[in-house]
Design a protein around this nucleic acid. Sequence first.
DNA 1: CGTAACCTTGACGTATATCAAGGCCAGTGG
DNA 2: CCACTGGCCTTGATATACGTCAAGGTTACG
Lengths: 240, 240
Amino acid sequence: MSVIRPIDHLLRKLNGPSGVSGQDFERVAAVRLNLRYMKAGAEIIREGDRPSQCCLIVDGFAARSKSIAKGKRQIMSLHQRGDLPDLQGLHLDHADHDLIALTECRVGFISYNIMEELIFLSPAIGSFFWREALIDAAIFREWIVNIGRREGLPRVAHLFCEQAIRLKQQGLGDETGFPNFLKQTVIADATGQSGVHVNRIMQALRRRKLVETNDDRLDILSWEGLVAAADFRSDYLHLR
Amino acid sequence: MSVIRPIDHLLRKLNGPSGVSGQDFERVAAVRLNLRYMKAGAEIIREGDRPSQCCLIVDGFAARSKSIAKGKRQIMSLHQRGDLPDLQGLHLDHADHDLIALTECRVGFISYNIMEELIFLSPAIGSFFWREALIDAAIFREWIVNIGRREGLPRVAHLFCEQAIRLKQQGLGDETGFPNFLKQTVIADATGQSGVHVNRIMQALRRRKLVETNDDRLDILSWEGLVAAADFRSDYLHLR
DNA sequence: CGTAACCTTGACGTATATCAAGGCCAGTGG
DNA sequence: CCACTGGCCTTGATATACGTCAAGGTTACG
């Protein structure tokens, strides 16, 4: 029974078919994280920041978001433990959006110098980071489609399908459900709708026996039904 | 008066503050492109393809798009000469969307093997590609905000602002306008609206003396006015 | 002269936003 | 133990931005 270290959730991803092993793997395992606790609602990174450290989500859930005129907010992505929602800092000098904690979070910071050194010493690690960033982008594209072309209910259903699959990769959920970190206002901001409307969509999803929620879990009552309602295909997640 | 070669539009980007120079620059300049002409409407890459070559837009305009149930189409990005809309192929094994020619296009293909060799031989070239892909992702994020949270008119205005700035970088336009490659149905698919509604928005933009169009040009009559209507800030484009 | 692509128009329907109020529950402090 | 507060969810009434349908108008082109 070994203790789970903060870096382990990142290592879990490397452990897969990423091609990072042996000495390279050990190099990542040896990285020292600068750990911080964040309260729910805290800004981990703020738009305009020029961060010198890259951030790894160790525990909890976070979201990238932007606020525009009139206090409207849009969430562009959701993040869980093991995610590096901040890779763009490697090559872009300022953050163009916020990173906010949706729940209480533990985050680990790694200086970009160390990141660059890892990439320099190991092409396999570089490829792994590349791939993470490219999948990120693929998810952005799918969100554009989701928000631009699907109606309210399919849009929310699609979000749930995506989360179920992504959370499963980190052992946080599966096709039967996942921890309920998605408040209705978060769903609203992630799908580009009003809170009131999302509330009515949730009622419809319950009525159709697709989804049930309580304080700590979102249960998917029929995976096939939800997938059909969402018109969901997982190709864009590039699972392997 | 030297002839403009197909690779020159890519070199123009490298020539800037990218840090690629000397031997590295020459290596890119020496890359042999596999040139192809595409008619307007042609699919340059199709969803599901497993391309072995990376594509450089040499001339004309292209768009990434996805089609969903009921024939609805969503455009996720617009591309001009010098763009590499296909970098994800470096690390992802299948295309998760189409790349379509909006106008007649010349495209140059480069095998991923050569791309990898370039990156391997020159970290500066690798960083340049990284940066391109990360800016791509930043634009995706802004599109999510645009489609999710702005109303019809600001949404279209924002698209025009972005295009003006991006096209200026390649000498194809500026704050006074650019070639009119954006048919109303393309604007509709890019902003997640119906063609009829976009038509009415265009009329409103003309009425407000912000924009005028004819067959070959889109004229911006008031850059400041358009920026204000769009709530446009260019930070996310990471210009330098 | 006919066709195809694109833009335009009007009438109508509806998905979704907004406003405003109330309910429930957990946590807090007296 | 009770009153109070703040999150979050829920509800009904009303308003509106936008989609859909169906038709007609240009212009370019073969």
